[in-house]
């Protein structure tokens, strides 16, 4: 049986979730089983950017297995209102079920807030390969000025211009390459 917290997978209700079986202070190192299940959950593709896995996107926060075999997964949304979180939860439950884990709770946590810096180097490479300019790393806190150069994922030119601050999803901006004239999505820094 797959159980979810009462408010999941309607997501975003992190604070309403039942208190986590918190391990005070230093959480114990993951067991071999936890590491294996974590890798499985992390291999689930992002529903909107299927070239990326949840691990590469950096949204899988933790996975713990209790003494009774219950699996507790912590997931964090990219954007507060991102509807993909529900599909992510379902994907994690499914892959764990396929590996014999039926007692699974996927909880949404907000803190610490997800940042595009949480996307792995491999994730950035895959984004660019997919035609989406990856987010630039943060030099400091705050929004990176959109006037900084974003490289065209098609031809590599740095001569690109912003068309719209919001694109196909909230996490992307729409840009155009001045050199090759192709429009492309840019994963905005968050």
């Amino acid at each position: 049986m797959v159980t979810t917290a009462p408010e999941a997978p309607s997501a975003a209700a992190g604070p309403k979730a039942p208190p986590a079986p918190t391990e005070p202070a230093a959480a114990p190192a993951p067991t071999a089983l936890e590491a294996r299940l974590h890798a499985l959950a992390g291999s689930v593709p992002d529903p909107e950017l299927p070239v990326l896995s949840l691990a590469e996107l950096g949204v899988l926060r933790s996975l713990r297995v209790s003494d009774t075999g219950h699996v507790d997964v912590e997931l964090t949304p990219t954007y507060t209102g991102c509807p993909a979180i529900e599909a992510m939860s379902a994907g994690i439950e499914q892959v764990l079920r396929e590996h014999g884990r039926d007692d699974v709770t996927v909880r949404t946590v907000l803190s610490p807030a997800w940042s595009t810096d949480d996307i792995s180097a491999e994730g950035r490479r895959k984004l660019a390969e997919f035609g989406i300019a990856p987010p630039r790393p943060h030099a400091a806190d705050g929004v990176v000025p959109l006037t900084l150069t974003v490289r065209c994922p098609h031809c590599g030119s740095t001569d690109t211009e912003l068309l719209s601050r919001f694109s196909s999803t909230a996490c992307k901006a729409l840009r155009r390459c001045v050199t090759c004239r192709e429009p492309f999505d840019h994963f905005k820094e968050l």
Binding site: A13, T80, G81, L110, F166, S167, A170
Partner: peptide, 28 residues
């Protein structure tokens, strides 16, 4: 079209915030 998408995206961000906040106050 770009503004249609932009305004809808801003609305989506706000809706996500509203869901978390209202869930803190009761049933969303």
């Amino acid at each position: 079209l770009e503004e249609e998408v932009a305004l809808a995206n801003i609305a989506l961000d706000l809706l996500g915030q509203a869901r978390v906040l209202l869930s803190l106050a009761g049933d969303e």
